[in-house]
Protein backbone atom coordinates (compact mmCIF):
# COMPACT_ATOMS: atom_id res chain seq x y z
CA UNK A 1 0.00 0.00 0.00
CA UNK A 2 1.20 3.50 -0.81
CA UNK A 3 0.09 6.57 1.12
CA UNK A 4 0.67 10.16 0.10
CA UNK A 5 0.41 12.40 3.14
CA UNK A 6 -0.06 16.12 2.50
CA UNK A 7 2.36 16.19 -0.41
CA UNK A 8 3.30 19.61 -1.68
CA UNK A 9 5.66 20.38 -4.51
CA UNK A 10 6.56 23.89 -5.58
CA UNK A 11 8.88 25.28 -8.25
CA UNK A 12 9.72 28.78 -7.10
CA UNK A 13 6.34 30.47 -6.70
CA UNK A 14 4.55 27.90 -8.87
CA UNK A 15 2.70 25.10 -7.09
CA UNK A 16 2.74 21.79 -8.97
CA UNK A 17 1.08 19.72 -6.22
CA UNK A 18 -0.91 21.27 -3.39
CA UNK A 19 -1.53 19.22 -0.26
CA UNK A 20 -2.14 15.88 -1.95
CA UNK A 21 -3.26 13.03 0.29
CA UNK A 22 -4.37 9.68 -1.08
CA UNK A 23 -3.96 5.94 -0.66
CA UNK A 24 -3.20 3.37 -3.34
CA UNK A 25 -4.12 -0.21 -2.36
CA UNK A 26 -2.26 -3.39 -3.40
CA UNK A 27 -3.66 -5.65 -6.10
CA UNK A 28 -5.24 -2.82 -8.10
CA UNK A 29 -4.62 -0.88 -11.27
CA UNK A 30 -4.55 2.75 -10.22
CA UNK A 31 -4.81 5.58 -12.73
CA UNK A 32 -3.81 9.23 -12.40
CA UNK A 33 -5.99 11.36 -14.65
CA UNK A 34 -5.82 15.06 -15.39
CA UNK A 35 -5.10 17.75 -17.96
CA UNK A 36 -1.58 18.74 -18.94
CA UNK A 37 0.09 20.36 -15.93
CA UNK A 38 -2.42 18.87 -13.48
CA UNK A 39 0.37 17.28 -11.43
CA UNK A 40 0.17 13.63 -12.57
CA UNK A 41 3.79 13.31 -13.66
CA UNK A 42 5.05 15.33 -10.69
CA UNK A 43 3.25 12.97 -8.31
CA UNK A 44 4.66 9.92 -10.07
CA UNK A 45 8.17 11.40 -10.25
CA UNK A 46 8.04 12.08 -6.50
CA UNK A 47 7.15 8.45 -5.90
CA UNK A 48 10.02 7.14 -8.05
CA UNK A 49 12.60 9.53 -6.51
CA UNK A 50 13.24 11.62 -9.60
CA UNK A 51 12.15 14.70 -7.71
CA UNK A 52 11.69 15.31 -4.01
CA UNK A 53 8.51 16.76 -2.62
CA UNK A 54 8.75 20.15 -0.94
CA UNK A 55 6.81 18.84 2.06
CA UNK A 56 4.75 15.85 3.15
CA UNK A 57 5.49 12.13 3.33
CA UNK A 58 5.22 9.22 0.94
CA UNK A 59 4.81 5.90 2.77
CA UNK A 60 5.36 2.68 0.83
CA UNK A 61 4.51 -0.59 2.64
CA UNK A 62 5.11 1.16 5.97
CA UNK A 63 8.46 2.69 4.92
CA UNK A 64 8.97 6.41 4.54
CA UNK A 65 10.44 7.21 1.13
CA UNK A 66 12.72 9.92 2.50
CA UNK A 67 14.29 7.48 4.98
CA UNK A 68 14.29 4.18 3.04
CA UNK A 69 14.70 5.37 -0.52
CA UNK A 70 16.95 2.53 -1.71
CA UNK A 71 14.74 -0.21 -0.21
CA UNK A 72 11.64 1.33 -1.76
CA UNK A 73 13.34 1.73 -5.14
CA UNK A 74 13.99 -2.03 -5.07
CA UNK A 75 10.24 -2.58 -5.05
CA UNK A 76 9.41 -0.23 -7.92
CA UNK A 77 9.70 -0.79 -11.65
CA UNK A 78 9.34 2.46 -13.55
CA UNK A 79 8.52 3.30 -17.16
CA UNK A 80 9.16 7.03 -17.72
CA UNK A 81 7.03 9.29 -19.91
CA UNK A 82 9.94 9.68 -22.32
CA UNK A 83 11.79 6.51 -23.34
CA UNK A 84 14.80 8.51 -24.52
CA UNK A 85 17.16 7.26 -21.84
CA UNK A 86 20.47 5.41 -22.05
CA UNK A 87 20.40 5.89 -25.81
CA UNK A 88 24.05 4.87 -26.21
CA UNK A 89 23.36 1.41 -24.81
CA UNK A 90 21.99 -1.53 -26.72
CA UNK A 91 18.72 -3.03 -25.49
CA UNK A 92 20.71 -5.87 -23.95
CA UNK A 93 23.14 -3.50 -22.20
CA UNK A 94 20.16 -1.66 -20.75
CA UNK A 95 18.52 -4.85 -19.46
CA UNK A 96 21.85 -5.93 -17.92
CA UNK A 97 22.07 -2.60 -16.14
CA UNK A 98 18.53 -2.95 -14.79
CA UNK A 99 19.02 -6.52 -13.58
CA UNK A 100 22.26 -5.56 -11.84
CA UNK A 101 20.50 -2.62 -10.17
CA UNK A 102 17.71 -4.89 -8.89
CA UNK A 103 20.11 -7.77 -8.28
CA UNK A 104 18.13 -10.21 -10.39
CA UNK A 105 19.94 -13.54 -10.79
CA UNK A 106 21.22 -14.54 -14.21
CA UNK A 107 18.85 -17.54 -14.46
CA UNK A 108 15.78 -15.54 -13.56
CA UNK A 109 16.81 -12.77 -15.93
CA UNK A 110 17.28 -15.16 -18.84
CA UNK A 111 13.95 -16.88 -18.25
CA UNK A 112 12.00 -13.61 -18.03
CA UNK A 113 13.87 -11.95 -20.85
CA UNK A 114 13.09 -14.71 -23.33
CA UNK A 115 9.38 -14.44 -22.59
CA UNK A 116 9.26 -10.64 -22.70
CA UNK A 117 11.46 -10.28 -25.79
CA UNK A 118 9.28 -12.78 -27.62
CA UNK A 119 6.11 -11.07 -26.46
CA UNK A 120 7.27 -7.69 -27.75
CA UNK A 121 8.83 -9.21 -30.85
CA UNK A 122 12.30 -7.83 -30.18
CA UNK A 123 14.33 -10.98 -30.83
CA UNK A 124 16.34 -9.40 -33.65
CA UNK A 125 16.94 -6.10 -31.91
CA UNK A 126 18.58 -7.00 -28.61
CA UNK A 127 22.04 -5.82 -29.72
CA UNK A 128 20.81 -2.68 -31.45
CA UNK A 129 21.64 0.65 -29.78
CA UNK A 130 18.53 2.22 -28.27
CA UNK A 131 19.35 5.41 -30.17
CA UNK A 132 18.55 3.54 -33.41
CA UNK A 133 15.08 2.55 -32.21
CA UNK A 134 11.78 4.23 -33.01
CA UNK A 135 9.83 5.76 -30.13
CA UNK A 136 7.70 2.62 -29.82
CA UNK A 137 10.71 0.28 -29.77
CA UNK A 138 12.38 2.40 -27.11
CA UNK A 139 9.17 2.22 -25.10
CA UNK A 140 9.11 -1.57 -25.42
CA UNK A 141 12.75 -1.76 -24.29
CA UNK A 142 11.98 0.26 -21.17
CA UNK A 143 8.82 -1.73 -20.42
CA UNK A 144 10.76 -5.00 -20.64
CA UNK A 145 13.41 -3.52 -18.34
CA UNK A 146 10.80 -2.50 -15.78
CA UNK A 147 9.29 -5.98 -15.73
CA UNK A 148 12.55 -7.94 -15.47
CA UNK A 149 12.76 -7.57 -11.66
CA UNK A 150 9.04 -8.46 -11.39
CA UNK A 151 8.49 -5.40 -9.14
CA UNK A 152 5.84 -5.21 -6.42
CA UNK A 153 4.89 -1.80 -7.75
CA UNK A 154 4.90 -1.14 -11.47
CA UNK A 155 4.65 2.53 -12.35
CA UNK A 156 4.08 3.76 -15.88
CA UNK A 157 3.94 7.39 -16.95
CA UNK A 158 1.86 7.75 -20.14
CA UNK A 159 2.83 4.22 -21.21
CA UNK A 160 0.71 3.79 -24.35
CA UNK A 161 2.24 6.71 -26.25
CA UNK A 162 3.88 5.52 -29.45
CA UNK A 163 3.05 1.84 -29.05
CA UNK A 164 1.54 -0.08 -31.94
CA UNK A 165 -1.91 -1.68 -31.39
CA UNK A 166 -0.47 -5.12 -30.70
CA UNK A 167 2.02 -3.79 -28.15
CA UNK A 168 -0.71 -1.68 -26.54
CA UNK A 169 -2.91 -4.73 -26.21
CA UNK A 170 -0.04 -6.79 -24.79
CA UNK A 171 0.83 -4.08 -22.31
CA UNK A 172 -2.75 -3.94 -21.04
CA UNK A 173 -2.71 -7.70 -20.60
CA UNK A 174 0.57 -7.50 -18.70
CA UNK A 175 -0.83 -4.80 -16.41
CA UNK A 176 -3.85 -6.96 -15.63
CA UNK A 177 -1.68 -10.04 -15.07
CA UNK A 178 0.56 -8.04 -12.72
CA UNK A 179 -2.27 -7.09 -10.37
CA UNK A 180 -3.62 -10.63 -10.47
CA UNK A 181 -0.40 -11.63 -8.69
CA UNK A 182 -1.43 -9.26 -5.86
CA UNK A 183 0.95 -6.56 -7.06
CA UNK A 184 0.22 -2.95 -7.86
CA UNK A 185 0.13 -1.04 -11.14
CA UNK A 186 0.09 2.76 -11.18
CA UNK A 187 -0.11 4.70 -14.39
CA UNK A 188 -0.93 8.13 -15.69
CA UNK A 189 -2.80 8.76 -18.89
CA UNK A 190 -4.66 11.32 -20.93
CA UNK A 191 -6.55 8.56 -22.63
CA UNK A 192 -9.84 8.23 -20.76
CA UNK A 193 -10.98 5.21 -22.75
CA UNK A 194 -7.84 3.35 -21.66
CA UNK A 195 -8.36 4.44 -18.07
CA UNK A 196 -11.99 3.29 -18.19
CA UNK A 197 -10.92 -0.04 -19.63
CA UNK A 198 -8.10 -0.72 -17.16
CA UNK A 199 -8.42 1.12 -13.87
CA UNK A 200 -9.82 -0.24 -10.64
CA UNK A 201 -9.21 3.05 -8.88
CA UNK A 202 -8.45 6.55 -10.11
CA UNK A 203 -7.22 9.89 -8.83
CA UNK A 204 -8.33 12.91 -10.82
CA UNK A 205 -6.09 15.95 -10.47
CA UNK A 206 -6.71 19.53 -11.43
CA UNK A 207 -4.01 22.20 -11.10
CA UNK A 208 -2.17 20.15 -8.50
CA UNK A 209 -5.24 19.44 -6.37
CA UNK A 210 -7.09 16.18 -5.91
CA UNK A 211 -10.60 16.33 -7.35
CA UNK A 212 -11.54 12.68 -6.97
CA UNK A 213 -9.90 9.60 -5.47
CA UNK A 214 -11.60 6.25 -5.29
CA UNK A 215 -13.15 3.38 -7.17
CA UNK A 216 -13.78 3.86 -10.86
CA UNK A 217 -17.05 1.91 -10.59
CA UNK A 218 -18.32 4.31 -7.96
CA UNK A 219 -17.39 7.25 -10.10
CA UNK A 220 -19.15 5.81 -13.14
CA UNK A 221 -22.19 5.03 -11.00
CA UNK A 222 -22.68 8.73 -10.30
CA UNK A 223 -23.88 9.14 -13.91
CA UNK A 224 -25.00 5.69 -15.07
CA UNK A 225 -25.45 6.55 -18.75
CA UNK A 226 -22.33 8.66 -19.11
CA UNK A 227 -18.83 7.65 -20.15
CA UNK A 228 -15.75 8.43 -18.07
CA UNK A 229 -14.91 11.16 -20.59
CA UNK A 230 -18.22 12.91 -19.97
CA UNK A 231 -17.90 12.63 -16.20
CA UNK A 232 -14.26 13.75 -16.28
CA UNK A 233 -15.02 16.79 -18.41
CA UNK A 234 -17.95 17.66 -16.20
CA UNK A 235 -15.65 17.51 -13.18
CA UNK A 236 -12.70 19.46 -14.47
CA UNK A 237 -13.23 20.44 -18.11
CA UNK A 238 -14.59 23.69 -19.49
CA UNK A 239 -18.36 23.91 -19.42
CA UNK A 240 -18.84 25.83 -22.63
CA UNK A 241 -16.72 23.82 -25.09
CA UNK A 242 -19.38 23.60 -27.74
CA UNK A 243 -19.68 27.36 -27.88
CA UNK A 244 -15.87 27.75 -28.15
CA UNK A 245 -15.76 25.28 -31.02
CA UNK A 246 -18.61 27.13 -32.78
CA UNK A 247 -16.77 30.39 -32.31
CA UNK A 248 -13.52 28.96 -33.68
CA UNK A 249 -15.14 27.29 -36.67
CA UNK A 250 -17.13 30.39 -37.51
CA UNK A 251 -14.35 32.96 -37.17
CA UNK A 252 -12.90 34.66 -40.18
CA UNK A 253 -9.47 35.54 -38.76
CA UNK A 254 -7.65 33.38 -41.22
CA UNK A 255 -9.85 34.04 -44.21
Amino acid sequence: MITFEHIRKTYGDKTAIADLSLTIPDGKIFGFLGHNGAGKSTTIKSLVSIIQQTSGDIIVNGMNLTEDRLKIKQKIGYVPDSPDIFLELTANDYWNLITSAYQVSEEVKKARLIKLVNLFNMQDEVETPISDFSHGMRQKTIIIGALLPDPDIWILDEPMTGLDPQATYDLKQLMRAHVQKGKMVIFSTHNLATAEELCDEVAILKQGKLVYNGSLDKLLATMPDASLETIYLKMIGRQNDSQIVKDLEGDDLGE
Binding site: L89, S100, A101, E127
Partner: peptide
Protein backbone atom coordinates in the same frame (compact mmCIF):
# COMPACT_ATOMS: atom_id res chain seq x y z
CA UNK B 1 28.31 -6.52 -10.09
CA UNK B 2 26.60 -3.13 -10.00
CA UNK B 3 29.97 -1.37 -10.02
CA UNK B 4 31.11 -3.40 -13.03
CA UNK B 5 27.87 -2.73 -14.94
CA UNK B 6 28.01 0.98 -14.20
CA UNK B 7 31.69 1.20 -15.12
CA UNK B 8 30.98 -0.55 -18.44
CA UNK B 9 28.17 1.89 -19.19
CA UNK B 10 30.21 4.95 -18.33
CA UNK B 11 32.97 3.58 -20.50
CA UNK B 12 30.55 3.53 -23.43
CA UNK B 13 29.42 7.06 -22.66
CA UNK B 14 32.99 8.32 -22.47
CA UNK B 15 33.90 6.76 -25.85
CA UNK B 16 30.95 7.19 -28.21
CA UNK B 17 32.98 6.97 -31.44
CA UNK B 18 35.05 3.97 -30.38
CA UNK B 19 31.85 2.26 -29.19
CA UNK B 20 30.14 2.93 -32.47
CA UNK B 21 33.10 1.60 -34.49
CA UNK B 22 33.43 -1.50 -32.32
CA UNK B 23 29.72 -2.21 -32.68
CA UNK B 24 29.95 -1.83 -36.43
CA UNK B 25 32.63 -4.51 -36.44
CA UNK B 26 30.24 -6.80 -34.58
CA UNK B 27 31.53 -6.38 -31.03
CA UNK B 28 28.92 -6.45 -28.29
CA UNK B 29 28.75 -7.05 -24.55
Amino acid sequence: NQLWQLTKINLLYANPQATSKARQSGKTG
